[in-house]
Design a protein around this nucleic acid. Structure first.
Lengths: 102, 102
DNA sequence: CCCGTGTGCTACGTATAATGTAGCGATCGC
DNA sequence: GCGATCGCTACATTATACGTAGCACACGGG
């Protein structure tokens, strides 16, 4: 559950690899306001296929960012919630960025 | 140069789309400590093809996150640097995360 | 004048990853 | 038993990225 292969010397490279694949960031974002079922997540990420959704969730679970619990479904772990805070900062930035550049 | 199509109601969705494609996060990360030439960037992102690198840089330039200047090469704009700060927070988180989970 | 080196960038064939649709086994309420 | 939902998978199609080679341009000697 918590074992992972270290393919990069700096952890940032690993997390960049994980977050830099399609849908991963989006999934975390959708998970930010409470637990979601697989199918709810699928509905929120409008064009994601169940195959990739499952792949991403499996990866995020492997790395201890997300867990699956019998009632409620998928949810962020404490580490995942910290990551969610960073996404909130990203959201605030995006708002300013959108205002400036648009 | 600064015009962009709004395909999502919330800016976070757009930035999630942009950052959630392969290499984009990594490119921004490599740009964080100073301007880089196209080829230097290519060397730092070890397996990126020039095709995608150019696509990503073009997209980031379109959105005013990165600029290309005659001496020095590619560099972050002021908005890009703000985004870089968020990546630094991500890096700090990654360090803790790696320490806990590994 | 030509040559080597560096720049940003493109073409094109091949490999990989994501999509869309259908459906599985399990669980729950009726 | 029936229908609705759950997480998840199979498989054929399509989009995306890769890898290599090379273009056009600029600069700085010899």
């Amino acid at each position: 559950m918590s074992r992972k292969s270290v393919r990069s010397s700096h952890p940032i490279n690993e997390i960049l690899d994980i977050l830099g694949t399609r849908w991963t960031l989006r999934i975390l974002w959708e998970l930010r306001d409470g637990p979601q079922s697989f199918r709810a997540l699928q509905a929120r990420c409008e064009r994601v296929s169940p195959t990739v959704l499952n792949q991403r969730l499996a990866l995020l679970r492997e790395h201890g960012i997300v867990t699956l619990e019998s009632p409620g479904g998928y949810r962020l772990t404490s580490q995942g919630r910290e990551l969610g805070e960073i996404l909130m900062a990203l959201s605030r930035w995006a708002k300013r960025w959108s205002g400036d550049a648009d």
